[in-house]
């Protein structure tokens, strides 16, 4: 029993780490531009897909190079999304921006479908598939890659927002856009940086987890939605809350899938989402939201 639970925890931490990255990316965009980016999951899918295809075949790039190129590509997608879909609709209502980002997610999925087709794609593990045993539970090296990579990126994001001028400038924009503008911050540029950063996190998440979970053109949908649930669980707009929410959601899902029913695994995430919204809409770590009267 203990081993079994340990196994669930390992699985949960791994998925949770991915949720955390998606939630973090989502939070960065939400904070910077007040937009709920439904295309967040597509960043993940595109990162994974393009890495697989850049590395494929005899003339394929080595994985690190393919991954790096993919990340740059996805960052460009994020920047283009901001520049051509979000920025022109500034000031639009919540519903309008939601439909725009959903439109963007469908569009990106459509692009992926055209370029890469409908098949499920696999990616080679970074450092082999020899399992590490902890009691009777097993851990793949890739699990460590996911957790370690996530930890590094979370630390990086934290450093960026608290110790660099650019990061602080984005924070300033999210607190008060007009004041930031008056202080000489190039708000437009900061928005691009925020979307680029968010895309980077998504792409990295996709590259890290795909050896374990596979990917396909529509793999981003559920991941994106789970990321939102995680962000709300942690407290909408709170980056560290997003990370905690992601890990927690991954763990709960994995335990529930193992102990209750695997079919309802996905439903559990959304039931938690509803419960959080009903009982404590500000989330576990959020301030009391002003969005609610």
């Amino acid at each position: 029993m203990f081993d079994q639970i340990l196994q669930f925890l390992i699985t949960g931490m791994t998925t949770g780490a991915i949720y955390a990255l998606v939630a973090l990316g989502f939070t960065i965009i939400y904070n910077a531009s007040d937009v709920v980016n439904f295309a967040q999951g597509e960043f993940v899918m595109m990162g994974a897909m393009s890495t697989i295809f850049l590395a494929a075949g005899d003339n394929g790039l080595p994985i690190p190079l393919a991954a790096a190129t993919s990340v740059v590509l996805v960052i460009c997608v994020g920047i283009l999304l901001q520049r051509f879909a979000i920025a022109p609709a500034r000031g639009a209502s919540v519903v309008t921006t939601i439909i725009i980002t959903i439109g963007a997610s469908i569009f990106l999925r459509g692009v992926a479908l055209v370029i890469w087709g409908k098949d499920i794609q696999a990616m080679a593990h970074f450092s082999g598939e020899i399992p590490i045993h902890i009691g009777n539970a097993t851990l793949l090296p890739q699990n460590l890659w996911v957790m370690g990579g996530t930890a590094l990126m979370v630390l990086g994001v934290h450093y960026f927002f608290h110790h660099t001028m650019q990061g602080k400038a984005i924070l300033a924009c999210s607190y008060n856009r007009d004041a930031a503008n008056l202080m000489g911050i190039n708000v437009g540029l900061m928005m691009l940086v925020a979307y680029g950063l968010s895309a980077l996190l998504g792409a990295m998440a996709g590259i890290l987890v795909t050896p374990i979970s596979f990917t396909s053109y529509d793999a981003g949908v559920m991941l994106g939605l789970k990321g939102f649930s995680a962000a709300i669980l942690g407290g909408m707009g709170n980056p560290m809350g997003a990370v905690v929410g992601g890990l927690l959601l991954g763990l709960i899902e994995s335990l529930a899938a193992g102990l209750i029913s695997s079919g309802y695994k996905d439903a559990i995430g959304f039931i938690i989402l509803l419960l959080v919204l009903f009982i404590r809409p500000s989330g576990l770590m959020g301030r009391r939201s002003s969005d609610r009267v």
């Binding site: 639009a92 309008t96 439109g103 963007a104 469908i106 569009f107 999925r109």
Partner: peptide, 12 residues
């Protein structure tokens, strides 16, 4: 799929 998503975005 791509055209549908694109139209949705553009209209909004």
């Amino acid at each position: 799929v791509m055209v549908f998503g694109g139209i949705l975005m553009l209209m909004m």
